[in-house]
Design a protein around this nucleic acid. Structure first.
Length: 633
DNA sequence: GTTGCACTGA
């Protein structure tokens, strides 16, 4: 990619990032400054390190067995054994993340079939072309099913793309396309500081492998290796989601979802920035520079045909045209970053048609993608479905109440919740509250306190313990409803959150329900955007003793209190364990290993002076009096 | 003939 003319401001490869990430995830690189008192290795539940006897195993095995039943040629066995190339060890095929390039999008599925049926038939169909890692069947808003067929390697996906195309499945001719896996974030400094791509990668690399980082061409600084804004394409979508969830709250960064950067190497689509191979741009010039001085300097590389010098306060630059391409190339190569008149120049090929951004060939505007699922976006006060991004207004989709069914099949020998891939640090474990283990990555320390304080918004007085039977009083009386399963729920369930589909009141406090305590909580948090603050989702563990069996719809289900789902951080959904334990009665503690969740760690801020500190949420039984203290102003 | 691209509360 470096051989061609520089189509992009900067394209850096991320050699070493993956390694760093793996180190990080092993917990070997935990920064004590970031996470004082946490030791991931110690806190990692041992149940998860051994896969053989874990109950989690049943999850995937069940799927595989199901496949076997319907599959006469027993290819499912191979699936079970299959180890994706490049994966260390193995057993953990379920948590193996196939690369987006190994993912196939399949459309034109039979809508009359159920998602489960489709999942099974798609699995059976696409096994023929390679080793499957995951099948997902989803439906679009018109209820038309489609599938993501994730292979473990690109070769299989490629084969499927070619050979499965227009084959017949369930009586329909299916269509296969490479999956578009949106995993690119736009990130800019909020105070116009320029940063290097390395800084971007250092910061975002914590969340996962990065495929490429590219400077924002629309920026005024596009000629520089420093940039105010960057596009960062992660290798995996979920890492991008995590990064977004964490950084969107930062006062220091503006983060939005961007459409994927086209891969520079697959010369798809014309580059939107044309290069004049004989002309160069010279930026960061000294104010006293003259054409003559430039001519003298740059004629070292060949005959100069023309010089256009633009002197603007603080922004002096020149276009220099050479008579030959060789001369221009030499000038770019030798003068970029060289010092001229005591200033470091920035020298690049001259770009033509710079109106066009390479990120949006049709539009002059940066094309931003909406955040994934229902992760709230910044909204205008009218709640009109627009939010203001770094470049203007953009629509978002998938608002509240946007529901889709889905069906997932995973393949391999372990439960999909069993991996420790994303787990790198753990929450504090106290003697009496072996509670919740927060997972990776640590968010930026400077606003860690804020996030936790904010997450407390979801925790206050939202709980009634089964032991004490003392619903915490709430001035708005929203906490409990009278139904039998209200106990483990937080106030958010009973309360219709302002801004959800239930509630027409789309105010600027969409994500902070109207509640006296919440307001006072907001006051504690010094932030201009506190109304939008949502704590980041985390992986964490909930121990069995923290789970409760609840009756719902005649079925016994296991709940973990205070666990919002990842993309519904403002909601109070209580999570299901990976597999529902059977044979339990209401109030019983489900057996087995701790369950891992992706959600928001339940914490409350310290009452009183120090709002920045965090602590794990105590069990209601143990802490209700404390809660009451906090609630009384 | 549907051209849809990421879900999980209810």
């Amino acid at each position: 990619m470096g051989s061609k003319a520089p189509l992009f401001t900067v394209v850096e490869d991320i050699e070493g990032n993956l390694e760093r990430l793996q180190e990080f995830e092993k917990g070997t690189e935990l920064d004590p400054e970031l996470d004082p008192g946490y030791n991931a290795a110690d806190l990692l539940p041992t149940t998860f390190s051994s896969s053989e006897d874990s109950e989690m195993d049943s999850d995937c095995d069940a799927d595989a067995e199901l496949d076997l039943l319907e599959d006469d040629d027993n290819t499912a066995n191979e699936t079970l054994e299959a180890v994706p190339a490049g994966e260390e060890k193995s057993e953990d095929v379920c948590s193996f993340r196939g690369r987006p390039s190994s993912c196939v999008f399949v459309a034109s599925l039979a809508a009359a079939l159920s998602d489960d049926e489709l999942s099974a038939s798609v699995t059976k169909h696409f096994e023929k072309w390679g080793t499957l890692a995951l099948i997902k069947v989803l439906r679009d808003p018109s209820n038309r099913p489609y599938a993501f067929v994730q292979y473990t390697n690109d070769a299989d996906a490629k084969r499927a793309l070619k050979e499965a195309q227009h084959t017949i499945l369930n009586g329909r001719t299916i269509r296969c396309e490479p999956a578009k896996v949106n995993r690119t974030l736009y990130i800019a400094t909020s105070n116009d500081t320029e940063i290097s791509s390395k800084e971007v990668m250092d910061m975002l690399g914590k969340y996962g492998e990065i495929e490429q980082v590219i400077g924002d061409n629309d920026s005024n600084y596009k000629k520089s290796n420093f940039n105010r804004a960057w596009f960062c394409q992660f290798a995996y979508r979920d890492d991008a989601i995590r990064a977004y969830a964490n950084l969107r709250l930062s006062p220091n960064w503006i983060v939005e979802w961007a459409q994927n950067i086209e891969h520079p190497s697959d010369g798809q689509g014309e580059p939107s920035v044309e290069i004049d191979k004989c002309s160069i741009f010279v930026g960061q010039l000294d104010g006293k520079v003259t054409k003559e001085l430039l001519a003298e300097r740059f004629s070292n590389h060949g005959k100069v045909a023309d010089i256009v010098l633009v002197l603007r306060a603080g922004n002096n630059f020149a276009f220099i045209r050479f008579e030959t391409e060789q001369a221009a190339a030499a000038a770019v190569e030798r003068e970029n970053h060289a010092v001229f008149m005591d200033k470091t120049m920035h020298v690049q090929y001259r770009e033509l048609h710079h109106k066009k951004s390479r990120f949006s060939s049709q539009s002059t505007r940066l094309n931003l993608a909406p955040p994934p699922v229902n992760l709230p976006v910044r909204r205008s006060s009218t709640g009109s479905g627009y939010f203001k991004g770094p470049m203007g207004h953009f629509t978002h989709m998938g608002g509240s109440g946007y529901h889709r069914s889905y069906s997932t099949s995973s393949f391999g020998s372990k439960g999909k919740f069993s991996g420790s891939r994303s787990l790198s640090l753990a929450g504090e474990r106290t003697s009496h509250t072996p509670k919740f283990f927060a997972g990776a990555p640590p968010f930026e320390p400077e606003f860690a306190g804020r996030m936790y304080a904010t997450s407390a918004k979801f925790d206050d007085n939202s709980y009634s313990s089964t032991e004490k039977h003392t619903p915490v009083s709430s001035p708005s009386n929203q906490t409990m409803n009278s139904s039998s399963h209200g106990e483990a729920k937080s106030v958010f369930t009973a309360t219709s959150i302002s801004g959800t589909s239930e509630n027409p009141d789309h105010s600027s406090t969409n994500y902070a329900p109207k509640h006296p305590h919440r307001r006072s909580m907001s006051h504690m948090i010094p932030s201009p955007s506190s109304a939008h603050m949502v704590p980041p989702p985390y992986y964490y563990y909930a121990y069995p003793e923290d789970c409760m069996m609840q009756q719902y719809d005649g079925k016994l289900q296991s709940y973990v209190p205070y666990v919002p789902f990842p993309y519904y951080p403002e909601s109070s959904f209580v999570g299901y364990p990976p597999q529902a334990p059977t044979g339990l009665l209401p109030g019983m503690i489900p057996p087995g290993p701790p369950y891992m969740y992706y959600g928001i760690p339940p914490v409350v801020p310290n009452a009183g002076d120090d709002h920045g500190k965090t602590q794990p949420l105590e069990t209601p039984a143990l802490s209700s009096s404390k809660h009451e203290e906090e609630l009384d102003y």
